[in-house]
């Protein structure tokens, strides 16, 4: 049986194996420091499609198919696919899964979708409801930019706290059996809103959610930060990471040594002029399913905590004067 421990964590007794992952990244991401760790780097961000929304769903679908191929599985082997993205009505996911023959649950967790899908997937398998689950997410700079910020050709300056939406996708195939790193704990976050209204400062909006989930994880499991080879956040970026480490220290947890952030890893912040770093579902998606999974397979990492954070931001509601709620979901992965 699975055990609930503490208030927000589930310890999975038959922890699912991360059988395989696939990651595809955009042109700019391919030029970054992790360029060689992605399975595939795009040469054209449109992927030959006429609209940016189609480009994103094609990106997501290609990633899913690549993951299946790498795991040597057929679509009919998969019990569930859990997918989501940043776009309205999750069009990235819906139009990618439309062409697949797999039962589907759509998720919206903004940039937290990678760990949200892995959390639910692990519980589905741990609960005996599935043998194989695919966890899939993506983001695309161009489709996000036009939905959330300014038109692509608009001549404006980004503020120093702005983050750059990653063009990329990640897909992880979870299995009830086999060899590989396992998801042992799932800590589900609560929606946290500390009243940040600046849509160009997502890191600051999301950091409180990250802190809340991380504190709950440590309290529930009794784990210490040093037990993890890495505490990986999704896209807090430079400012959000700084806030996370500093406020965690005030709570008595020093994570400065082993904390990493996908949004800081994926770009060369200065040279690629991305201000506070990367963001988007595809940020954690492509970095976890590329670089991090590679390190897990090489056993360079033994036990890590992956916690993607999401700013649950709607531009219209923010215009109405609301602040930006945020969420963070954490999963423990052990080799």
């Amino acid at each position: 049986m699975n055990t609930r421990i503490g208030t927000q964590t589930v310890k999975i007794e038959n922890p699912p194996v991360i059988l395989e992952t696939a990651s595809i990244a955009g042109v700019k991401e391919g030029e970054g420091p992790l360029g060689s760790t992605f399975d595939k780097v795009l040469t054209d961000d449109t992927l030959g499609e006429k609209t940016w929304e189609k480009s994103e769903s094609t990106l997501q679908r290609q990633t899913a198919l690549l993951a299946l191929e790498k795991a040597r599985l057929k679509q009919s082997d998969i019990n569930y696919i859990l997918a989501g993205d940043l776009l309205n009505q999750c069009v990235g996911a819906h139009y990618s899964v439309r062409d697949l023959d797999i039962p589907f649950f759509g998720l919206y967790g903004a940039c937290s979708t990678m760990t949200e899908s892995m959390s639910i997937g692990s519980m589905l398998i741990g609960g005996g409801c599935a043998d194989y689950v695919m966890c899939l997410t993506s983001s695309h700079f161009c489709s996000s930019e036009r939905q959330f910020r300014n038109p692509l050709e608009y001549g404006g300056q980004r503020t120093p706290s702005a983050q750059w939406t990653v063009t990329g996708a990640g897909c992880a195939v979870l299995s009830s059996h086999g060899d590989g790193p396992r998801v042992t704990h799932v800590t589900t976050g609560k929606v946290i809103d500390k009243g940040v209204t600046d849509i160009s400062n997502m890191g600051a909006a999301m950091a409180p959610a990250a802190i809340d989930t991380l504190l709950a994880h440590f309290a529930d499991t009794g784990a210490k930060p040093d037990e993890y080879d890495m505490i990986l956040t999704g896209d807090l970026g430079v400012i959000g990471s700084d806030i996370l480490c500093e406020l965690m220290l005030k709570e008595g947890f020093d994570i400065r040594k082993n904390h990493r952030d996908c949004g800081k890893l994926i770009y060369d912040i200065e040279a690629q002029d991305v201000h506070a770093g990367g963001s988007g579902c595809g940020c954690c998606g492509s970095v976890f399913c590329g670089y991090i999974f590679g390190e897990l397979k090489k056993r360079n990492l033994k036990k890590i905590l992956v916690m993607a954070t999401g700013a649950l931001m709607n531009p219209m509601v923010v215009e109405q004067g609301e602040s930006i709620p945020a969420i963070a979901h954490a999963v423990t992965i052990e080799n």
């Binding site: 500390k194 940040v196 400012i239």
Partner: peptide, 17 residues
């Protein structure tokens, strides 16, 4: 930390243009 305190803290953490 109240929301107001947090936003003050964020302001101080965020680099100015």
């Amino acid at each position: 930390m109240t929301n107001k305190e947090y936003n003050e803290y964020v302001k101080q953490k965020t680099p100015d243009s």
